[in-house]
Write a protein that binds this DNA or RNA. Sequence first.
DNA 1: TGGAAGCGGGG
DNA 2: GTGTACGCTTCCA
Length: 784
Amino acid sequence: MFVLDSDYKTFNEKAYVRLILKNDSKIGAFYKDFEPYIWAVCDQREIESKKELIEGISKESHGKFLTIKKCIIEERYIFGNKVPVLKVIFNHPSDVPNLRKEIEDITDIYEYDIPFARRFLIDKNLIPAIHYNFEIEKGGEIPIIKNFQIEGNLNLSLKVLAFDIEVYCKAKPDAQNDPIIMVGISTNDFDKVITYKNVTADYIEVVDNEILMLKKFFDILLEYNPDIIYTYNGDTFDFPYIYERAKKLKITHPILEDIRIDRRGINDSSKIPGMVHIDLYPLSRKLLSLNKYTLENVYLNFLGKEKSKIQLAEMDQFWEEGTQEGLLKVALYNKEDAIAAKEIGAAIGPLEIELSRIVGQNIFDMSRMASSNMVEYLLMKRAFEEKTIVPNKPKGSEYLERSSETYEGGFVLDPKKGLHEHIAVFDFRSLYPSIIIAHNIDPNTIGCDCCDNTSPEGVNFCLNKKGFIPEILKELIERRVQIKKKLKEASDKNEKTIYQSQQWALKILANSFYGYMGYPRSRWYSKEAASSIASWGREYIHKAIKIAEEMGLNVLYGDTDSLFVGLGSEDMEKSKYFRDKVNSILPDFMELEFQGYYRRGFFVSKKRYAIIDKENNITTKGLEVVRRDWADIAKKTQEEVLRTILEGKGPEKAAEIVRKITQELIEGKTPLDSLIIYTQLTMPLSSYKQIGPHVIVAQRMKEKGEEVKAGSMISFIVKSGDGMVRDRSFDVESFKNAGYKYDADYYIDNQVLPAVMRILKGFGYTEENLKYSKNKQMTLGDFF
DNA sequence: TGGAAGCGGGG
DNA sequence: GTGTACGCTTCCA
């Protein structure tokens, strides 16, 4: 059996850790004898008197009388010294936040903010997603865990279910008014769509109404009882929507009593006990480098697969009409979205499982934790093993102080602007992790007189003292080397997936240590360490650039640990020679890798470039405007300019396209729909201090009696005339009804030109060169 | 120039 | 849940 998830429950005022255990079946079993505690640290000579004071603490809170259970003196390391400290034991986890102020008045306190179930996993060295022998006593009111021993098998048989909902709505979906029309489900055993209008296909089940559809969905969840639920944006959309809708429709179902919807801004989560919900949208953002993270785009770029498409307006129309053909399109789309989620999950889920095993925390938490936080839990686990008390997170003022400390980051070379052909890209393999290990960089190795190990920043790190962080990091890196070897030798598909996920997990963690030490909320924060790592990194990239230049290579661009080099031709030999030459002068632990060959590319400025490979795959950085607050005309024109240049048709051809678009704008030929700008109201109208166009538009809509509130999406077009833009902005309907003329200058100067200038600036164009001119088609030749 | 405000994904 | 929160980019004042 293995731990799928864990939390805790309270029985008779006592907290029991609950483990969701799985092998052939799944059960929730409880661990009784784990107690919440924190550390209190004071001068050794005062320890007895402080112990008495702390044990005497009591407080009334919400009608309950809270006391400290007991204090025990134990030996622990703190800041490198082994000293007696007080282990303060509480009656219940919720007493910790209630009583810790009182203890803090008496002594320094540590480890007071570690959630109970996570603390349990650390202290018991119990690792999720690995098989253990659990000795469970059944027959009582609840199953009780008596004992457990690691068994080690990594083969998990997990039941997986992905789902997706479709909503019928005219504007932004609102669960109070807009019905769910379909629920699509995909598992390894079946694909299914539930709906309540007549449509026939083998995968569709038609029920009488929305209530029955949702109940059917809940029944399937209970009956199939998946271990993992995959959604795409389920944390912020599907789960909260279903939950609110079910309440609105007064549905009762056992699953609704267990479901937990947490809406906390950036950290939303939706949870059903016993089923690990993994939302693939935030994960895709974290793990994949794309310029758009729609399900469609992730499916295409990550898995190379396409699914059927549908416009939102079409979906509403098909639902209204209710024809077999239309409904089938919606159903197919719904089903394929669920399938896409399942398939993306199959590629990302194993990674989350490996992270869980390395970090030692639950799969659910891994899928929502920032990687710096994972590093922290890994460090905390090691600290516990070494009987070291972990440092506290910074309090408010210290956090602000840390946030204001800036330091120089990686070196970014000012690029050689314009178009280049035959580009080789090189990366330093694990540059920062290598530096941390080689130079023993740790908050506790700073400052010694015995070693010659000073960073270009002027900070000395002792090589003889044990570095907690570099030691752990070294283990991760060495494990990764071993696993990559095994991956090469493996032939079995499942085995490969595991190794592939393991090496990916180790890479993610290893690459997060530098950021971790520089992250202001870290327990093991060190600005000196972080800035020193970056400074050594700058030194190494400079060395590589020097070698390239000595070889007569054309260094086009470089950023932190990557180099873009112009080869003159598709010269792989020269690439290898350069790589090997750099590697011959680098320390053993560091390596420059050939990342790829690109047939063409251009660089605009630091962090802004685009390259195209032999298969015509385009990679862009910092260029694309894909947000909804850009009008379609700007997005489309930019896309065309990008493609034209990368296909080798020349920047002047791209400039011509822009001139044609601006000409159409001036002549009033541009369709209004491509000029709509979408901006959301994020607060009540009265709260705005800065009145932007969308705020004015919303005010006018409200005066007309339309419902506008926080969350409403305002779509507007800018009318021609004088004065401020906001005074000339109108909602699309009013604009069209009044027969207004759009403001061509606004769309040229504030939309199209800024979007294309991001690219064409790198080719020496100015706004003036790109505007349509009646008298003369200006070209670059007129200016140079 | 600083600071306020919006974006992202989902329908 | 032993919690209090992202990392930009753009535009207003």
